[in-house]
């Protein structure tokens, strides 16, 4: 067991930092906010922690905490900037934001290490998998809470029908802003923990490839629940190991998997599982439904007869029913 752990430690680390990355984007999707800002925060998290540790002698925890707070604030500001954008246009604005972060990383001179990046990010307290798992456990617990009960219902409403949500007393704008702040926190955590463990970061590790990775995870795993994201993260971190025989074809295989998932399984794996589960329980409700239908059919017959009666009645009294519909 510990053999497996040590020989695959990098993969295990990757699984969970990638989980945080994907969650930082999925949490916004769940609220109907089509934003990729999480990838930018991941990049900012990595570089931010690296800069604080290398140039300003921060310790691991203080660097992480500082960057998380900064990214949360940036997230809030970003939410204000893009508050009138939606759908595709919001998505592209956030993509532009991600790309700008990448360009800054490329051109940051000695601060960001230019195109070579930063390395040697070592802290007195060594961050390793147990820390990562603890953070992820807290995050997942929060996700679980947010998917159940009143919070879960409200998020559903905010995503599916914002006008209805408003009518139900939900402040939709506040949820939108919160989604950016949370995305900032999760992205920064993922990126910060990542660099504390990998000790090196370069511009090619952040930016558009992160967006593609997160998207593939969310599409294949499912966007509604953290479970889908975890499944996706596991698949796409460990698939290369499984596909080792396939070797260099793996990126082609990825692309095909994503394409197929996008076309045929918009709900991802968790979507399919939920569907199957529901169809089974629906069958048991079918009987109740059938008798209901028979009742309605009978009522409809009565209705037709009464409608004729009503026509006659109304023709002799006041105004006929129904305007110019």
């Amino acid at each position: 067991m510990s053999d497996f752990y040590f020989s695959n430690i990098v993969l295990i680390q990757s699984t969970f930092t990638v989980l945080l990355l994907a969650l930082s984007i999925q949490i916004q999707f769940r609220m109907g906010v089509f934003s990729f800002a999480g990838a930018a925060f991941y990049g900012m998290g990595s570089y931010g922690v690296a800069i604080l540790v290398l140039h300003y002698d921060f310790g691991a925890f203080s660097a992480l905490a500082t960057i998380v707070v900064i990214c949360a604030m940036v997230g809030y500001l970003l939410s204000l900037v893009v508050q009138r954008l939606n759908g595709l246009y919001l998505a592209m604005a956030t993509v532009a934001f991600v790309m700008i972060v990448t360009v800054v990383a490329h051109n940051g001179g000695t601060l960001t290490g230019g195109s070579v990046g930063l390395f040697g990010v070592l802290t007195p307290v060594e961050i390793s998998v147990p820390h990562l798992l603890a953070v992820c456990a807290v995050v997942v617990a929060a996700m679980i809470v947010s998917e159940r009960g009143a919070m879960g219902r409200r998020i559903e409403a905010v995503r599916e029908d914002p006008e209805l949500a408003s009518a139900m007393g939900i402040n939709v704008a506040r949820y939108r802003k919160m989604s950016f702040v949370l995305s900032g926190v999760l992205g920064a955590l993922g990126g910060g923990l990542n660099i504390l463990m990998m000790t090196a970061i370069a511009p090619e590790n952040i930016g558009f490839p992160l967006i593609v990775l997160a998207l593939t995870i969310i599409i294949v795993g499912g966007s509604r629940s953290w479970i889908g994201v975890l499944i996706g993260a596991l698949i796409f971190t460990w698939l290369p190991v499984v596909l080792e025989q396939v070797g260099t074809y793996q990126s082609i295989v990825y692309g095909v998997i994503v394409a197929i998932a996008a076309i045929f399984m918009p709900g991802g794996i968790t979507g399919i599982v939920t569907d199957l589960y529901r169809r089974r329980s629906a069958r048991s409700n079918a009987d109740a439904f059938e008798s209901e239908q028979r009742l309605e059919a009978r009522a409809a017959e009565e209705d037709a007869a009464e409608a004729a009666e009503l026509q006659a009645e109304l023709a002799s009294s006041t105004t006929p029913s129904g305007g110019s519909r």
Binding site: R153, E156, S166, A167, M168, G169, V172
Partner: peptide, 29 residues
Amino acid sequence: EAVARLGIGRTFQTVRLLEDLTVRENVQL
């Protein structure tokens, strides 16, 4: 969103229920 808090409830011209929630959950909302 403050209108509901005042105590004004409403139904809509076209039915607006959340498809992925059960009847119970929709009412719980």
